[in-house]
Each structure stands twice: as structure tokens, then as C-alpha cells.
Amino acid sequence: MQTPIATTRSATGIPTGRLAIWWVVASEIVIFGGLLLSYVMHRIGHPEWAIAQAHTHTFVGAFNTFVLLTASFTAVKGHEAAEKGDGKKAAKFLYLTMGGACLFILVKSLEWTSEILEGYTIQANGFWAFYYTAAGLHALHVIAGAIVIFFVARDAAKGRNLQRVEYVGIYWHFVDIIWIFLFPLLYIAK
């Protein structure tokens, strides 16, 4: 399917793909913003949730933050390589980013299973409901990001659509920023 002439035009000077990704990020800001702000309001309204929040493992959260930061780093290195036209190197970095995503999901699932076995299920208490919903929605975005990165990396390895490495990078950095705010909200603000 040939790209239409419309896609190649850029009246604003920003390539169409990147402009679309900025709009995707804007709509994600309002979605996560709505969820996190609802959580913040409830958390301030319910000081007794601190007891439930004490059962979250700050170190596991910190490690996951480190994993995502590293994944973000490899993603931007991938973009740097793609910028220089080196598809192979960009693909290598993107596969590293995918590895980081999988590790994040693995650590998260282990963490959740231990918490659920201790009895802190989503129905247990208002805090746990928000905890699983917010972290769950974020985890879904991590998984979706990993899948998209896989296809972009495969294309990049063959030197096609290298500009998509940057676009998926922007989405991935945004998912990392959401976790940067989620981590203190869920783990540290005890």
C-alpha cells in the first residue's frame, strides 16, 4: 500500500508520524492523569489507606524503576543509531529495550502474585483497587510498547522505516515517565 501524498506533506515542519505520536502522548496524559489524580484525591481523603500501603515492597518498585530507566536509555541509543542510518545497531538496542520490558513485567507479576497470596486482592480495599488498576493499566502499556518495538526493530534491522524507531521511542519514554510518577505515588507515599 503506497503512502498517500498527504502523508509526505509537512505543513507544520514536524514529520506526520512524530506529530501523530505527540497527539497519542497527549491523549495518554489525560487518561493516566484522570486515573492518577482520582487516586491522589482518594488517597488524601483516606489517611487509613497508609496501613494497606505499608504492605507494598518499595525495593521491588525501585528495581522496576531502574529497569524502565535502562530500557529508556537503550531506546534512545537505538534512536541515535537509527538517526545515523545504522538499522542493525538500532534493532539491537530495541531488542534490549524489549528485554527490559519483559523483565519489568516479570518482576511485576512476581510482586503481584506475592501480594495477592498474602490476601491483598483488588477487592480487599480501596487502596489495593487503585494500586492494581493504575499499575495494571501501565503494565498493559508496557506490553503494548514491547510488541510494537518488536515489529519496528524487525523493520529497522532490514533498514526500512527507520524514522519509526524515534516514534516508538517517544511512546516508550512516555510510558517510562508515567512509571516515574506511579512509583512514588504507590510505593513511597506511605
Binding site: 507544520t12 515542519g13 514536524i14 506529530l19 502522548v25 529508556s72 536509555f73 531506546a75 534512545v76 517510562d176
Partner: peptide
């Protein structure tokens, strides 16, 4: 992350307005 990894620092101002 936003400034350096997402290159917002060098992006056109329209993108900053959108976010």
C-alpha cells in the same frame, strides 16, 4: 527524560503546546 530522551528541547513549539 522528556527534554533529552524525547527531544522535546529541540522540538517545534506546537508539540510543547499540545502536551
Amino acid at each position: 527524560v522528556a527534554e533529552n530522551f524525547m527531544h522535546l528541547k529541540w522540538e517545534k513549539v506546537i508539540a510543547k503546546w499540545v502536551l
